[in-house]
Amino acid sequence: MNRVLRIAGGVAFAAAAVALVLVLPHWLSDAKAAEFARAGCFFIAIIGLNLVTGYTGQISLGHGALMAVGAYTTAILTADHGLRDLWTIPLAGLVAMAAGFALGLPARRLSGLYLALATFAFAVAMPALLKRFSGLTGGSQGINLFDEALSRSTGALGHVHLAGWTLATNDFLYYLTWGIGLVLSGAAWLLVRGRLGRAFRAVRDSEVAAASSGINISFYKTLAFAISGFYAGVGGSLFVLVSNWFVSPSTFTFDKSLLLVVGAVVGGLGSLAGMALGALFIQFVPTWAANLSSAPGAPSVFFGTAIVLVMILLPGGLGGFLLKLTEPLTRRLYTRSE
């Protein structure tokens, strides 16, 4: 009975989330829809980061670089190999998954700060590498699909016609990113509540205990990084579309990686609804801060203050706060049958 209620609660929550995502564009201006679409990309990448950091306990400061791998996969396949941009999204995920696997290899030997530095090295090196291999990546100019592959960029010329519906470009991008985001967060939910999630959490809570229960620690750490890479890659791929079909090395400097970690922790590690809030935080709070004052440096001060305040007032992040708000309701739901 308890189990049924729990699943029913989950389904109700998922249905509410889907409904919210579906109706939101009715109240949004075109420009706002584009901003929400960007937040959707962060959402997907942060779910991935959450799998590694929140569930498996491995700190990664390199997820911005994994987004870059996904973004460039989409840009190169669309510009040079004649693929339609939408079909490259899963491919970008798979390529970034391979990169995530490689990034996870040091995790077999390193932990804590040493691992943080290793992943950070990847984030710092990425823009330099992208500039270095300019034959493939267009160097510091980047790749502009608007110029190079207009016909294969879905919605770049205005409206999108989809099964009898006509959508404005930004609405289409919004539905695309949040649609994929919801599907992938559902997948992540299924993943972490099963055998795999149990193994991840065991590695996080005590490596010694996990190993003595027969869990192959190295395998699960690398696996977490690989799956997480898939998420970051899809997020990065979509990021190209929502950035006017343009990507350059300066899109993915190391501060993107830091921003993703901020989003994950501010959202509240370990809570999927929190991940969405974290993504909205890193997308909208900087814009809000920039609107407060245009003095040089002032937006940075406001953004930093917002981060510090959230951490001091809500140590569990926004998601933890949400959980606390709904707790009286859900506790009733769960304990009734006992």
Partner: peptide, 15 residues
């Protein structure tokens, strides 16, 4: 994360 927040604050304040 609080120190990352401080990073933004101090950098912005200096500007």
């Amino acid at each position: 994360i609080v120190t990352i927040g401080l990073f933004f604050i101090v950098n912005g304040a200096a500007f």
